[in-house]
């Protein structure tokens, strides 16, 4: 299977000498096209740094990153910025929507930055808002929406530039149980539509939606679980009906 994203020996260190911190320490990651991968670990394990490195928000200290068949760790600042605009979509815990812009303006912005025409960007944004169930809220300001709705807008925005890879950092971190379920449904839809997704989280619920779960500790991968396939048929027992 071909990888959309792969890293080899990816490393990010801070400081030097005695105070050297290995935030990401020699990580080999392969994500296949259409796959959802979740990376879990305690805070400080390096999972957010990893996400920033593969998304071009931070620079690696060593190792390689290949995205959609291209080596991207050696790109110039300018080429890296272009890569972020055209190939990657981001979803953050704190939504990071622009409060001065309406919902639909927020969603169409990445498409505009990626070079689409205003008309095409608007059409795409309208379609995405419909997909996340917020087509009636296009003209509202983000501040008028609930946390769950804002995160759904943020997901729509992440898809605006038709990225090859969506990166999500604790996307359910600020949401209650019902809003979490909405976002989980949305990620499930993306997955079914063939979107490649990497999620870093400490929320077991969103991690459990992934095809593959990687545990990270002290900057390195320590365990990997394939969640698809395997045992099923436990619902009755889980509900206390059997056993």
């Amino acid at each position: 299977m071909s990888s959309i994203l792969s890293t080899r020996g990816l490393t990010r260190t801070y400081g030097d000498g005695e105070s050297l911190v290995r935030a990401v320490d020699g990580v080999d990651l392969d994500v296949a096209a259409g796959e959802t991968v979740a990376v879990m670990g305690p805070s400080g394990c390096g999972k957010s740094t990893l996400l920033h490195l593969v998304g071009g928000l931070d620079r690696a200290s060593g190792g390689e990153i290949h995205l959609a068949g291209r080596r991207v760790d050696q790109l110039t600042e300018r080429a890296l910025a272009r890569l972020r605009r055209t190939d990657v979509g981001f979803v953050f815990q704190a939504f990071h929507l622009m409060d001065e812009l309406t919902v639909i303006e927020n969603v169409e912005l990445p498409a505009l930055l990626a070079g689409r025409s205003p008309r095409a960007a608007r059409a795409r944004a309208t379609e995405l808002l419909r997909r996340v169930g917020l087509d009636a809220k296009g003209d509202a300001l983000p501040t008028a929406l609930s946390g769950g709705q804002r995160q759904r807008v943020a997901v729509a925005r992440a898809l605006s530039n038709e990225p090859v890879l969506v990166l999500a950092d604790e996307p359910t971190g600020n949401l209650d149980s019902a809003a979490t379920l909405d976002v989980l449904r949305l990620f499930e839809d993306l997955h079914e539509a063939g979107q490649t997704l990497v999620i870093v989280t400490h929320d077991e619920r969103i991690a459990a939606t992934a095809d593959r779960l990687i545990s990270m500790r002290d900057g390195a991968f320590v365990d990997e679980t394939r969640l698809t396939g395997g045992t099923t048929g436990h619902l009755g027992a889980l509900a206390g009906l059997e056993g």
Partner: peptide
């Protein structure tokens, strides 16, 4: 712990898919 977690995550996935 890892073995137990794998098993619980698979069950969480199953319950959650049903919930969704």
């Amino acid at each position: 712990v890892d073995t137990q977690r794998r098993e619980l995550l698979r069950r969480l996935r199953e319950a959650q898919r049903a919930a969704m």
